[in-house]
Design a protein around this nucleic acid. Structure first.
Lengths: 149, 149
DNA sequence: CAATTTACTTGCATAATGCAAGTAACCTTC
DNA sequence: GAAGGTTACTTGCATTATGCAAGTAAATTG
């Protein structure tokens, strides 16, 4: 496993503590894929996350599980697949992700075309968007027989 | 100058683009210090940001200036000081920072005592908090004779 | 039962960061 | 007006993290 330095676990600042978990290049992209882009398998995340390396993806998936932001199920009809999904704790990062997306949209106008899952952000309120995203996640979870999260 | 890899400049995802600018361990901590903790000098940032190295601080300050998230003034009475401050673009990251702080507060309950500047987060609404923070920044800017931002 | 899919691991090169020390310009004090 | 301190950095080198290509093992498909 790739090591990760904890520079401020002892910090009493919630921003520093939060960044210890999600403050690297890849973690939030994985969360985005799980939350907005309908990716659930390892190979989907590998091809989706802007070119993440397989060892880094593996490392981050482990860290996210240890921090209880994600879990996986193994579908009954195919035991070699792992379907990763967000816990409630992981889903709650939606506000960070929306904040970042709205900021980018405001200032980085060089974005040609928005990903489909983010287009509604431009005409929905944040709470409406969150409701929509959570409903879609719920629907997928039910299709997989996942009750908790 | 330390190099920084751009892994997804061509990405059309605003989350990936945003992370290219602020998705490392230190950048958002510097923004936090400038926005919430009243730090403005190099040495203050050096001692505040959870132990950032001087070369990394230097590198990030340059990157933040190039991206127009921060600027600096040199006070008339002491030409060796540089007082860094956030532009409007930098200040608008407040929503990302609040999102992260609220998330941490909800889940990482091992935070003994909150930094003073974040205590009002627990009893103010987000928009009230933003108003308060921006008012304090404005006040400091006026004390330094900074008109724009 | 051989080929393929899936989820990884391993090894090694490259890039980013941490740390200690050094530098240059400006100020302060005698 | 020189000596020493302050401020904002640089530099060099060790350590750590990441990127990339290839390999592995178990489950499944043909």
């Amino acid at each position: 496993m790739v090591a990760k330095k904890e520079h401020s676990l002892k910090s009493s600042c919630p921003i520093a503590c939060g960044l210890d978990l999600v403050g690297d290049h890849w973690t939030l992209l994985i969360v985005r894929d799980l939350m907005l882009f309908g990716r659930h398998e390892y190979r989907e995340l590998l091809s989706s996350s802007e070119g993440i390396s397989s060892n880094i993806l593996s490392d981050r998936l482990l860290k996210l599980q240890q921090a209880e932001l994600i879990r996986y199920t193994i579908p009954a009809d195919n035991k070699r697949r792992k379907l990763y999904y967000l816990t409630r704790k992981g889903k709650d990062l939606v506000h960070v992700i929306i904040g970042l997306a709205r900021w980018s949209l405001k200032y980085r106008l060089d974005l040609e075309e928005l990903p489909k899952s983010l287009q509604s952000l431009t005409h929905l309120s944040t709470s409406e968007f969150v409701t929509q995203v959570f409903a879609e996640l719920k629907q997928w979870e039910q299709s997989q027989g996942i009750a908790d999260s």
